[in-house]
Amino acid sequence: MLRKYSNYRSFSDNLKLGTLTAFSAGMVNVISVIVFFAFTSNVTGHYAILAQEIAKGNWYQGAVVLVWIFLFFAGNFTSNCLIIHNNTPTGRYIAHAIPVFLEMACLMFVGIYLQYFYTESLKETEFLVAAMLFAMGLQNGLTASISNSKVKTTHLTGLTTDLGVVFSMFTKKEFRNDKKLIQKAQLLLGIMFSYMAGGIISGLLYYKIENATFIVIGMVLGAVLLYDYSKLQVTRFVQRRRSSFQRRYSLYDKKA
């Protein structure tokens, strides 16, 4: 999911990354609406609200929204910076894992703060929403960057546009068996349903376990990190075995 970059990624890599991260984004967005009355996985609405607040002359609210948008931008910026400055075959997994780890840290911080320190003041709300937007920016920047913009999981505007385009292509017979188009539709549908599922589950969970929902989000992101880590360990184990076998075999050859 995280080890491969750009065009070296397979459809399966993108599908796994897309569905898991979309699931966590759906969870984050719904929980932020329930707790803070603000969307945190997308900024399109925030741009509209910013314009509206400026038009109304509500400078304070406008400034809050502008800082939120900046935090989403900062998340994307940080994510891509980490990726492009550490794009070496050996450090690639680490470079791709750090944004997920930072995202996890941000969301865990929000969960812990909500559980133990939150007094429901407006300043706290604004700050925690900003932290969640930064986390979502990190995720979106990572998925878009490593997948050549094929996977974007925190907002569904572009995805719905692409789905509309892909399904319109299917109205022509010649495209119905096009493997690339079919895979694209599968990927987009996978992300869409996963985002929805994350949102629904988050909504249901919050009323049962409240702030512990953030632990579940952390676990989903942990699965993204550990899946590739385990794959790397298996690969290294196989490589070690193979090299020791080859060494032994060459020694045997020499003796013979």
Partner: peptide, 17 residues
């Protein structure tokens, strides 16, 4: 500048709270 202006607004203006 835009970011600095926003921060200034946040510090200077009274919040709805």
């Amino acid at each position: 500048l835009l970011l600095a202006l926003s921060v200034w607004f946040l510090l200077d203006q009274e919040s709805p709270e």
